[in-house]
């Protein structure tokens, strides 16, 4: 089972302030623990939303609206994620509980989300065939 631990953005992370050395060390130790337990798949931190864009579709089938960052409401934004592969939801919760408070100063928040498994995904044959065709078209284009 795969789970994603989503680290929420804070005022500091949005302002591009680096976390304290203490937190960086704690995170490094935590990631090391994940690696040694054989459960870490990926861990990435994101730039603040000041260089992000948002694409929204207020009307279905119409052109999207593109908005430049930064975005407000830090709590709704994410600052990073850690993807783990574990035996059970219980194990995922335990790992999430062991993650250091990601930003400190009272604003740290981690969200634990389960990733869809193969059996839960659609097996729509037409959609899959289309996907395959698209892939072949892309691959057949001469390489730059």
């Amino acid at each position: 089972m795969k789970f994603m631990m989503v680290v929420k953005a804070t005022k500091d992370s949005e302002e591009g302030k680096m976390p304290s050395q203490e937190l960086i060390d704690a995170m490094a130790r935590y990631n090391e623990e994940l690696v040694r337990a054989g459960v870490l798949l990926a861990a990435e931190g994101l730039h603040p939303t000041s260089n992000a864009i948002q694409i929204s579709y207020p009307e279905p089938n119409k052109k999207p609206i593109v908005t430049d960052g930064p975005f407000t409401e830090a709590k709704e934004l994410i600052a990073g994620f850690t993807l783990i592969e574990v035996k059970s939801k219980e194990e995922a919760i335990e790992w999430a509980m062991r993650m250091p408070d990601p930003h400190g100063y009272g604003q740290g928040q981690i969200e634990l989300r389960q990733v869809f498994e193969a059996s839960e995904l659609t097996d729509d044959e037409t959609a899959l065939a289309k996907e395959k065709q698209l892939r072949e078209t892309i691959a057949s284009k001469p390489k730059a």
Partner: peptide, 17 residues
């Protein structure tokens, strides 16, 4: 998780430890 269930917590810890 409003009430942490000891059995579930132990299951998680056991998987790791």
């Amino acid at each position: 998780m409003t009430e942490p269930n000891v059995r579930q917590i132990l299951e998680g810890i056991w998987a790791i430890e």
